[in-house]
C-alpha cells in the first residue's frame, strides 16, 4: 500500500471524525467537493453535518472555530491556501492566541494551512506563514515533513487544548509517498534526527527536509561529508535540546527554510544556538532561506527563488570550509 502525504491528512481527519464526536471540519469547498486538494474527500458523506462549507470569509471561519472551541468542540479549519490566512490573522493571533492567557480558558482548534511553493503557483498561492504565527504567544505551530508525521501530528494537534497552526506542504501532497502511516512515537514538540552525521548540522522543517537530505547525500558522494539533518517538526515551541545536541556533535550549523529570509524560524534557530550554544560552534552559524521577493510564478524563477539541493550544497561547502 502506498500512502501520499495528502491522503495521510485525509485519513487523520477520517480517524478524528470517527473517534471524537467533538471534531468537525469547516472550510471553503470542503464538503461534497472534498476540498481544493481533496484532503476531505468523502468525509461529508461519511459524517453528515460535521463537514461544513464556509463562505469565503477567513476571518469569520476562525472566529467560528474559537466560538465552537469555547463550547467544547474540536474544530479543524481548512484554509484553502496558507496565503489567505492573512485575512484571518486577527482572529488567529488576537482572538485565539490570547485567549488562554487572558481568561484561563483554552481554545482547542486546529487550522490547516496548505503552505509553501509549487511550480506555477505564484505570489499568492505559495507562501509559508509559520514564522508569522510563531511570533505570537499562545499558538502552537507544526510543520510535518513526512507522511507519518502528517497523519500523527494532525491527530496530536487536535488533542492539544491550545490553538494549533498545522502547516502542510502542498509540494509534498502527491509527490511524497510512503508504504504506510506507522510513526515512530515522537511527541508533538520533539524534533527528529532525520539523517545522522558528524561534520555539520542542517536544521530545517517541512518540504526543505527532503531538499536537505538530497544535499546531504550529494555532499557524502562528493567528499565523504557526513551531514546531520534535523527535522524540527514543530517550530513553535522549538525543540532546542535536540538542536543543541546535534550542534554539539557536529560543531557547524546551517538553518534552512523555504520562508522569506527576514526574521523567521531560521533566524530564531541561529539566534538561539548562538546564545545558548556558542561554545559548541566551530564556525559561524549560517542561514539559508528563499529570496526576499514575492514567490515568482514561472517554474524557472520559482526554482531559483527557493533553496535547492544545489544551492544548499553551496552553502554547506562554505560552512565546511571555514
Amino acid at each position: 500500500m502506498s500512502v501520499a502525504y495528502v491522503d495521510a491528512i485525509r485519513e487523520a481527519q477520517d480517524h478524528l471524525l470517527r473517534e471524537d464526536p467533538r471534531v468537525f471540519l469547516y472550510g471553503q469547498d470542503i464538503s461534497h467537493f472534498g476540498g481544493a486538494f481533496k484532503a476531505t474527500k468523502g468525509l461529508a458523506e461519511a459524517y453528515p453535518g460535521r463537514v461544513l462549507d464556509s463562505p469565503i470569509s477567513e476571518d469569520s471561519m476562525i472566529g467560528m472555530a474559537v466560538g465552537a472551541a469555547l463550547e467544547g468542540m474540536r474544530p479543524i479549519v481548512e484554509m484553502q491556501f496558507a496565503d489567505f490566512s492573512s485575512i484571518a490573522f486577527n482572529q488567529i493571533v488576537n482572538q485565539a492566541g490570547t485567549h488562554f492567557y487572558r481568561t484561563g480558558v483554552p481554545v482547542p482548534l486546529t487550522v490547516r494551512l496548505p503552505s509553501g511553493g509549487t511550480p506555477g503557483s505564484g505570489p499568492f498561492h505559495s507562501q509559508s506563514m509559520e514564522a508569522i504565527y510563531s511570533h505570537y504567544p499562545g499558538l502552537v505551530v507544526v510543520t510535518p515533513a513526512t507522511v507519518a508525521d502528517a497523519y500523527h501530528m494532525l491527530i496530536q494537534a487536535v488533542s492539544v487544548d491550545d490553538p494549533v497552526i498545522y502547516c502542510e506542504h502542498k509540494f509534498l501532497y502527491r509527490w511524497l509517498k510512503s508504504s504506510g502511516i506507522e510513526g515512530d512515537g515522537l511527541p508533538l514538540g520533539a524534533a527528529r534526527i532525520t539523517r545522522p552525521g558528524k561534520h555539520a548540522t542542517i536544521v530545517t522543517y517541512s518540504a526543505m527536509v527532503h531538499e536537505a537530505v538530497r544535499a546531504a547525500d550529494r555532499m557524502q558522494e562528493e567528499g565523504g561529508w557526513e551531514i546531520e539533518v534535523v527535522d524540527l517538526r514543530t517550530v513553535k515551541p522549538l525543540d532546542m535540546d535536540t538542536v543543541l545536541a546535534s550542534v554539539a556533535r557536529t560543531g557547524r550549523l546551517l538553518a534552512l527554510g523555504e520562508a522569506f529570509p527576514w526574521g523567521g524560524v531560521t533566524a530564531e534557530v541561529v539566534s538561539r544556538v548562538s546564545s545558548e550554544g556558542f561554545h559548541l560552534l566551530d564556525a559561524p552559524p549560517k542561514r539559508f532561506n528563499s529570496r526576499d521577493t514575492p514567490v515568482p510564478y514561472h517554474p524557472k524563477l520559482w526554482a531559483a527563488h527557493r533553496p535547492t539541493p544545489e544551492t544548499i550544497c553551496l552553502a554547506m561547502r562554505e560552512l565546511l570550509s571555514y
Binding site: G97, F100, Y101, P106, G138, V140, D162, P187, L188
Partner: peptide
C-alpha cells in the same frame, strides 16, 4: 505561559 499544554 500563553499555552496550556506541554507539547512534549
Amino acid at each position: 505561559e500563553a499555552r496550556s499544554t506541554n507539547l512534549l
